[in-house]
Design a protein around this nucleic acid. Structure first.
Length: 135
DNA sequence: GCCAACGTTGGC
DNA sequence: GCCAACGTTGGC
């Protein structure tokens, strides 16, 4: 099972919205690198949910419920969407500042390339972030 | 609000 | 095919 991290502006779609809805279509990705990651996702893969712009922290865990399919919001048909379901909120959010300050996370893709909205997370990085969350 | 990073576009 | 200009994202 692979691990991922997705970003969302909480003002647009927060983790609480995903918990309320029970499931969401992760659409609107218009970046090729991010789209490649979406295409690599498998059902059951675990996904960290990060709040950008406001919060600046990983706040929850989600799971891939449907693998990549054509994004209905992309008229050109070049990009894909996946479906996500909520798993749990973190006991404590893990902030970007904390992650940047942790040498164990120096290689984290979302830190190395800050604009990438969908990025892979290594197993040891996943474990470290959950540890920081108090889980 | 500013700016850095980075992807995309378009002229040549 | 190169590269400058431009747009977008996202942290600060």
């Amino acid at each position: 099972m692979a691990h991922w991290l997705v970003k969302s502006e909480p003002a647009k779609y927060a983790f609480a919205d995903l918990q309320r809805d029970g499931r969401t279509m992760w659409d609107g990705v218009r970046n090729n690198a991010a789209a490649l990651h979406l295409k690599a996702m498998k059902v059951g893969d675990a996904v960290l949910y990060y709040h950008s712009q406001e919060g600046l922290a990983v706040v929850g865990v989600a799971e891939v419920a449907r693998e990549a399919y054509p994004d209905p919001t992309d008229a050109a048909g070049r990009f894909v969407a996946v479906d996500l379901i909520p798993v749990c909120a973190l006991d404590r959010p893990v902030t970007l500042a904390e992650m940047k300050a942790n040498p164990a996370l120096a290689g984290l893709e979302m830190i190395r390339q800050s604009r990438l909205s969908v990025s892979p997370v290594r197993p040891e990085e996943w474990a470290e972030i959950l540890r920081m969350a108090g889980g």
